[in-house]
Simulated assay, not measured.
Amino acid sequence: MNTSIFVLIGILFILMAGIGGSRGIRSFFSIVYTVTIFMLLLIFISMGFDPIKTALIGSLFISIILLFNINGVNKMTVVSSLSVLITILLTLLISLPFVQAAKIQGFSYEQVEQLSAMTPYIDINLADIVFIEILIGLLGAVIDVAISISSAMNELYVLDPSLSFEKLFASGMKIGRDILGTMTHTLLFAFLGGFFSILIWFSTLDYSFANTINSKLFVGEIFHIVCGGIGILMVIPITAVLMATVFTRNN
């Protein structure tokens, strides 16, 4: 591995420790844990384990590690983990028939040169890999939104424990709507950044607009951002109703 990568990782650790303190250090090691889990996912899938079930279990572990390691064991973290799990399952159930109908799994003819050096005899359903890609792209955004809403609602309840379910839920929804615009743009920018080189490639090959929007590569990226948006939209009410229920049930 290039030495410059280790230097950048060292700079990242110093900045996270210096600015974030103990929480920054925990966040850094959470990144290490997450990368390790992804490596284990690849190993288990290559060994023949069911890709979707393996990815779901891995996502659950990643959510638990990220949320509990950074925020500790409390009601807020438990609710965030539960809302993330529910949102991921619902999003995958909604997107499943559309991904199958779009037939975006597998490789496109732009990747023929890359395939020439690979063997076609692999015992992996490429349709499942599409769901794993959607799941990975969805996970970070959903965790971010869930913890942001639950943290803000937790502070509201600490300041005023007399808040009713309706008022706390309404506050959670308002917080979620404020987050919604920035998070959807985050997904869009991630899509544009990852797809920019491919768009230049298409332009160099003199692709028409119709060929571009019908390419598997392009449609696959669109599915990622749309499914991510659906997940963000669903995690807002799910987190708000769970937080309001947990904090006001004694009232």
Rank of each mutant, 00 (worst) to 15 (best):
V84M: 14
G176I: 03
T204K: 05
L135D: 11
A244D: 07
D128N: 15
S162W: 05
D160P: 05
T3D: 11
D144L: 07
V145D: 09
L205H: 13
G231K: 06
Q105Y: 08
G140I: 12
I9C: 12
G10F: 11
D178I: 03
G220Q: 08
M153I: 04
L217P: 01
F98E: 10
K216I: 03
G228A: 08
G72M: 06
M76S: 06
M47R: 14
L93E: 08
G18D: 13
D128I: 05
A102E: 04
E133W: 08
T119A: 00
M47E: 14
E113C: 01
A117P: 04
L233Y: 08
V145W: 13
I9V: 15
L66V: 15
G181C: 07
I52C: 08
I230C: 11
L12Q: 10
Q114I: 14
M118K: 05
F189C: 08
G137N: 12
I230N: 11
L85E: 09
G137Q: 08
A170L: 07
A101N: 06
L159C: 09
F189E: 00
N211L: 13
Y109G: 01
T34N: 00
G24C: 08
G137P: 06
G228H: 02
S81E: 06
I143A: 06
I129M: 15
H185V: 09
V99F: 00
D206W: 00
V142R: 02
E133V: 14
G181D: 03
K216Y: 00
L93M: 09
I236P: 10
L205D: 03
L180C: 00
D123H: 14
T87K: 08
